[in-house]
Simulated assay, not measured.
Amino acid sequence: MTPHTRIRRTVHLRRGHTFVWRSAGAADAETIWGWWTAPVLTYWGTAPRVAKVGPPPYGPETVRDYLALPADRLGVEPVVGELDGRPVAYAEAYAKKDSLLAGVPLLEDEARGSHLLVDPTDRVDRRVVLEVVVDAVDWAFETWPAAQHYIGDPDIRNRSMVNLHRMLGMRQVAVVELPHKTACLVAVSRTDWADDRARIASLVR
């Protein structure tokens, strides 16, 4: 059994906001379940996640059990993002080689990515979302020096997130059929991200 890494990362955003990434835990289960099952959310893929826990019925306790699964079975590191102390995002950081994208031969196995969900029940400022995604890429490249690409795999129906990744200079490398969604696989290399960092910084000023 492989335990999860305990994660905490603090980011000071523009306009005086503080954003904290921290490991998701049992106390977050009800909030996360509310996000996963929000009526406006049609592309998250709740079913394959809760199926890892067991048969229905499902509810907040299912999320609690999901988060308690060992990292080697879960295949991701679940984190919650708090804006000025208020939970507004959930993410799952992963290595390509440990994900459903492992068989996609377009990028190095050391590529890192994240599944990102911003609170669908309450409007979060788009500029904040942009800053959070920028930090997710910075975080990946800082934490895993061997990773030569950062990847995102938003559902093609999630046009807002697809466009946001492209705004940040990520190129579409494939449309991938996964069991629970059709993913727009986007990527940016470590070199391109570094070379484009000044332009990217200007987007969040």
Rank of each mutant, 00 (worst) to 15 (best):
Y90G: 06
A29V: 11
G59F: 03
D125S: 03
R126C: 11
H149F: 13
Y58M: 05
V137C: 05
A95H: 12
V88W: 03
F19W: 13
F141M: 15
D109Q: 14
P154K: 11
A91R: 10
Y66P: 08
V134L: 12
P3Y: 01
R157S: 08
A95N: 10
A183H: 00
M170K: 15
R112S: 06
D138S: 15
L117H: 05
R9M: 08
D109H: 12
Y94P: 01
G113A: 12
A201E: 11
T2K: 07
T18A: 10
A146F: 05
P3Q: 06
M167L: 15
S99P: 01
D153P: 00
T191C: 13
R205T: 15
Y66I: 06
R15I: 03
A91N: 08
V53K: 10
V80H: 08
W21F: 15
A51N: 13
T18G: 08
A24R: 09
I156R: 11
M1E: 13
Y150P: 15
T191Y: 13
V118G: 04
E110V: 15
V188L: 07
P57V: 11
H4G: 00
E177Q: 07
W21E: 12
A146L: 15
A136F: 04
V50D: 07
V76H: 06
N158R: 00
L130H: 05
V128H: 01
P154V: 08
R166E: 14
L69I: 11
R8T: 15
R6Y: 07
M161F: 11
A111K: 11
T143I: 01
D84S: 12
V173I: 10
V104H: 04
L117T: 04
R190K: 02
L203R: 13
C184K: 02
R15N: 11
Q172D: 06
D125C: 00
V118H: 02
G152C: 14
L164N: 12
V128Y: 01
R205I: 08
V176F: 03
A194C: 15
V188Q: 07
V50W: 09
A24P: 08
A47V: 12
M1I: 11
L83R: 04
L101E: 02
P145S: 06
L185W: 02
D72M: 05
V133W: 12
L178I: 08
Q148F: 03
W139K: 06
Y90V: 09
A198F: 02
T62L: 07
G85F: 12
D122G: 09
T143F: 04
E30K: 10
A198W: 02
Q172E: 08
V63M: 11
E61A: 09
H115K: 12
L164Y: 02
V188D: 05
N158W: 00
P87C: 01
D125Q: 00
A27N: 12
